[in-house]
Amino acid sequence: MSRVMPPLPYRVTATHPETADAVSLELLPAAAALPRFRPGQFAMVYAFGVGEVPISVSAIRHQDGALVHTVRAVGAVSGALCRLRPGDVVGLRGPYGTGWDLDSAAGADVLVIAGGIGLAPLRPVVHQVLDRPRRYGRLGVLVGARTAEDLLYRDELRHWRTSAQVEVTVDRPTPGWQGTVGVVTGLLDRSELRAENTCALLCGPEVMIRHTAQALIARGLPAHRIQVSLERNMRCGTGHCGHCQLGPLLLCLDGPVVDYAGSQPLLAVREL
């Protein structure tokens, strides 16, 4: 049991514009550091005077304790975070949430499927699997984006291709795009899915998650081998504000990463 503390100050040491409306913030503790984050966990990130938003960690640098958060400007707080410059300070609380269960993926093929900004919480998974290749089977990374310009981590995707199957598809081809056009489920036919020994990790808009999980199940993957990262309103991160409920789940404690077998019936209930 830990006490809910005020945020700790973290200094922005670098900003990387990823797309027209998303920025990766590299953060180092200004004084004391938060406990270690695991892939899939999130922090409550405080923009001074504006507010806090839950943002999954998109890279964890253990050497110096740096955390990277990729923020998409969708509201007042995330907009303020996207405007930060190196040297600025934010408040950080965490780590919160379950994180991806990579222990259960040991010995299995890992299939990462991301839609849009959903690649951010999955990037630490790719890093971890690439760091420990002998612990896992094959790594597949399937990414859907609106256009090629909306793709996150374009340089890294190229680098991952040397040790993983990386497939990218866009909803709308823009001039110069020579790759796949269509939804991310279309990439499943292109990946060599060994349904009997694959662990799939999904993050993206809920419609994309449901559609992709169903497509995986249709291809023989059991629902309990599918982990999904879900999103609801969160105010505290500590299970006290009551906002992030999805039926029996308090997503800030029981999620954001949950097993699809358990969450599928909940996602099927409208306005739950």
């Binding site: 005020p6 945020p7 700790l8 100050p9 200004a30 405080y46 001074f48 005077g49 040297g87 300070v89 934010v90 408040g91």
Partner: peptide
């Protein structure tokens, strides 16, 4: 009131 935050000289401090 959960906390107070103060910004000065490029520092951010939180007080409860």
């Amino acid at each position: 009131r959960q906390w107070r935050a103060e910004r000065s000289d490029g520092q951010l401090t939180f007080e409860t």
